[in-house]
Design a protein around this nucleic acid. Structure first.
Lengths: 206, 206
DNA sequence: CTTTGTGAATTCGTTCACAGCA
DNA sequence: TGCTGTGAACGAATTCACAAAG
């Protein structure tokens, strides 16, 4: 499997979002310069990113928005849609759920898990909250490969372990804990304190 | 001003967190190997990061945890503590507030802003929510340089503009909008869909 | 002329290899 | 022998410079 740099993937996702917006406003094509300007990258960067997915533009008309958007989509998206599990239905978990529920067109299913007995069986956005002990049973019957962890730090590693046993291959980790996972599991660190301190640092440098 | 790579800063922040945890468990010193193992980087990486802040370890005892933690702190932290503004007190804004309120020792003040008249004047965690129109007045009298934007996308650019006028130099942007800002303002993109799609992509590759 | 596509050059970040030291 | 500190080597990612095409 050819290794695509994470940064390239991130940018492609951003390009697609921009293309989607532009299409909404009735635009039909654009040049790398314009896309670069909006996205905040250099035009060469944009062109070489698009080379990765093998998309061909024309010097005369640039890139066809509709076409390029679908091309990026078929490169990035899971063909049959993606199912995700959110573990920990506190404020943050609920925020994530709403976000995903309304903003992610490619999501085919969402499962919610918690340990709080007051929450088990209740619904958010029409989705029932399961006990975390049922995680293997429920995940085994869907094809859910991605999970979001929004539990208290002390439970993070335990939850990660269970998720991986249940077949999860990608984790968004909203806890500050550095998770120990097998090599074939992709973890994206979503800790919120690190970027805050980082921004605070650079805000002071200017 | 010497330019320090963002990645180095991020790792330093992570090191500090780990050191803090270890100190809590009564450890007094450690070697780069151990710190690297916990953080998930290479020992050389750790050592060269620490070189950046000019911290000296000893081959015999490695690094003094207490000392190193304060050294990183005085390098990363604002000397007099940092004040932040959170604009948009919805679910996500509240999550951020709680997170910051309890987990950020170096925060000296937090100001909350919204436009919803039902929220103005009410309090969260004992902090009063102001109308966004008062933003310049309130920010001008504290030394707040950092802001978190958790408003609906359509208001993001407008809010960013006001924040910058009010003297903000660092922004955590939780909206999917690519903000246009002057060069001396540092923006960290916190969009939640991009990492989700990214994880989904890599989960499928394995 | 303006744009895309792309090998070459450059910059940036990480790792290697080893000197210096307890 | 273990470790730290660091210049040199390497690798990844971005930009440059220019050929090709309308």
């Amino acid at each position: 499997m050819l290794k695509i740099p994470e940064k390239t993937i991130q940018r492609l996702i951003i390009y697609r979002k921009i293309l989607n917006d532009l299409r909404y406003f009735g635009e039909t094509n654009l040049f790398s310069t314009k896309l670069a300007k909006i996205a905040g990258y250099s035009p060469v960067q944009v062109r070489s990113d698009l080379m990765v997915i093998g998309y061909q533009g024309s010097p005369a008309r640039g890139y066809d928005i509709d076409n390029l958007e679908t091309s990026i989509g078929s490169f990035i998206d899971a063909p049959k849609g993606e199912g995700i599990a959110i573990v920990g239905v506190g404020k943050l978990g609920k925020s994530m759920l709403e976000y995903c529920y309304w903003k992610c067109p490619n999501l085919s299913s969402i499962e919610l898990f918690d340990v709080d007995s007051k929450l088990i069986g209740t619904e958010v956005e029409g989705i029932k909250i399961h006990h975390i002990d049922d995680i293997e049973m429920i995940l085994s019957q869907g094809n859910i490969r991605v999970a979001i962890i929004t539990v208290p730090p002390e439970n993070a590693q335990d939850v990660a372990g269970r998720l991986i046993l249940a077949g999860i291959k990608g984790i968004l980790n909203y806890t500050p804990v550095r998770l120990k996972v097998p090599e074939d599991v992709f973890v994206e660190e979503m800790d919120m304190i690190v970027p805050l301190e980082k921004v605070s640092f650079y805000a002071r440098q200017s």
